[in-house]
Design a protein around this nucleic acid. Structure first.
Lengths: 338, 338
DNA sequence: CTGAAAGCGCTTACAG
DNA sequence: CTGAAAGCGCTTACAG
């Protein structure tokens, strides 16, 4: 069996040309909407195309340097709703511009994004949207001729345009809101602070605290329920127990909600709660959770637009940053009452 | 500017061959781990490869009919956690076998999956995993030489192998559990019953009811909060109010939880609740929600394995079905107490 | 173990 | 408006 038939039809331009009684060039011109084709010829070509069941072979087209109309999107992990929503909005926007999106996940494997970039490139994607892992660096990589836009976080080792959330401001606003309730001991909990977004949110938290002449509490990393319970116990049994919890991402938020549940803590009476990142049940949970809503839709859209612009204009990335604001959704867990 | 340079290096085999002082064939053999290359030659080739920064041009390889080592995955919507978890597990499994996954979403556009299949094919994917839209039919499509596996639901119009959840059994078990609590009026709520999975779950519900000599209530479609509130009001104000709610999918589950909240219904006292589809907060929600856990991981894995098997064995799909069991996670919303 | 030739299916010049 | 020739960067099949 011939693997070549994977393309599905072994019908080539030559076959169509023969069926139509014209040259390959004429078929090719028709396929590319070239003006110079007679109506009469068009009819014959159309018929021949239909009869033969022709399907273009992209490999040959790309060998000739034509654009593939495919965009690559590299995300850390598709099981994470934040990334999958971004993937969704990127698709929408790309599709509106005639592009297909090739999505791939790195799944926390070292340098997996570098390998994905290489392979996507070999497969002739027209450009790449990258949500990079914190450890990857593009340093030394030959990026010539590869339109690239970083999403959510900048990428190390190269001056690449990037679009991100206003993480710092969002966090700062949330903490300022908590401070407005009179809480003074506010704990900040999240993931590895190496992550650019997490780092920015921590800075936002610290800025808000300092602005109110309070010292920020020590940052705590907490990714699962077990850790969350231990951390929470410690925070609440301190001499001066913590009054509010500010979680920096959804994983930590869920872990903390589990811990609060397990310890029979009443929110916001025992501790107030604010989450960076909104989620579907936040509005039904008891109490309703106040959150910082991330502009996932807009993030994906802006980045895609920027990438397409880079591709069509032949300009190159130079490290420009686009920040999309986050907004507060005030519900009850922070201490507000309706 | 030359678009051809998109590949990134205009270094070709010929350049490497010249640098190494050998023929193109020798380089090609080395690249494919062909045994017939002397150690001495290997060293020279390696050096030349490194010096020139060669990057293979997949377009040329594919033109020669080589496999692309890329699998296509078509899903309805990446913003849906169920599909994105499947995407995640497909990636994991594919990656373990050396395949890359090209994920694309149809986003409920008519025949979008057909177009995606076409385009992925033009781009020489080695096979496709398809979570088809209920309206799509493959009838009349030329699928020759295209390994294809349907996921989650069968695909209409062609005999394609598919792997799915044991939806009917899962639903039946859940309803049987509710019946065990003594509820007799159990409502079944979900999405469009055209969806194969939804249809199966409804059948499972009906089977369980009939087995207990009860007539199934009329199936209700309910996708958002507004509808949910209206439906719930009606169900609870009936002469013989409903005693338990069985939601068939996560969207309906969330909508119903919102409605229950808005109407100040106490679960399970006013109505019991059971959800098809588990979710992160189900275990912390008040009350904790009893659910049917879908085997997303296994679904993705099985389907990927099956597809790779089809590709490597050159066999073709014939409509075989693989069903993966779902399991009950009993918590409190059904009426159980710890 | 290594290489020269031919060809994959298109498109880009260039003619007419 | 249409076509014949050459070539994209590889690999296959055949020599040596």
């Amino acid at each position: 069996m011939n693997t070549r038939s994977l393309n599905g039809s072994n019908v080539t331009l030559a076959d169509v040309a023969k069926a139509a009684g014209v040259s390959k060039m004429t078929i090719s011109r028709y396929l590319h909407n070239h003006p110079n084709v007679t109506d009469r010829t068009v009819r014959r070509v159309k018929a021949a195309l239909a009869k033969t069941g022709y399907r273009p072979n992209h490999a040959a087209r790309m060998l000739m340097g034509q654009p593939s109309m495919v965009l690559g999107l590299i995300v850390p992990n598709l099981a994470n709703p934040f990334f999958s929503s971004i993937a969704h909005s990127v698709q929408q926007m790309a599709s509106a511009h005639g592009y297909l999106v090739w999505i791939a996940a790195t799944n926390h494997e070292i340098d997996s994004d570098l390998r994905l970039i290489e392979r996507m490139r070999e497969h002739h994607v027209d450009g790449i949207l990258l949500i990079s892992s914190p450890t990857t660096s593009l340093k030394g990589m030959d990026l010539a001729g590869l339109p690239l836009v970083a999403l959510d976080r900048p990428v190390r080792g190269a001056a690449v345009d990037f679009v991100t959330t206003e993480d710092r401001l969002g966090a700062r606003d949330a903490v300022t809101h908590l401070l407005g309730h009179g809480y003074e001991r506010i704990a900040c909990l999240g993931l590895d602070r190496q992550l650019h977004t997490i780092h920015e949110r921590i800075v936002g938290y610290e800025e808000a605290m300092r602005e109110h002449h309070l010292s920020p509490l020590r940052y705590v990393c907490c990714e699962d329920k077990v850790t969350a319970v231990r951390v929470l116990r410690k925070l609440l049994s301190a001499k001066r127990p913590v009054q509010a919890l500010f979680t920096l991402n959804s994983t930590t938020t869920i872990a903390m909600l589990e811990a609060l549940d397990e310890m029979h803590c009443s929110v916001p009476n025992d501790v107030a709660f604010f989450s960076f990142g909104d989620f579907p049940l936040a509005d039904v949970y008891r109490p309703r959770i106040s959150t910082v809503r991330q502009p996932t839709e807009e993030l994906g859209e802006q980045a895609t637009k920027l990438l397409i612009d880079l591709i069509t204009s032949q300009r190159s990335s130079f490290g420009k940053q686009i920040s999309v604001p986050a907004s507060l959704i005030i519900r009850q867990s922070c201490g507000c009452t309706r």
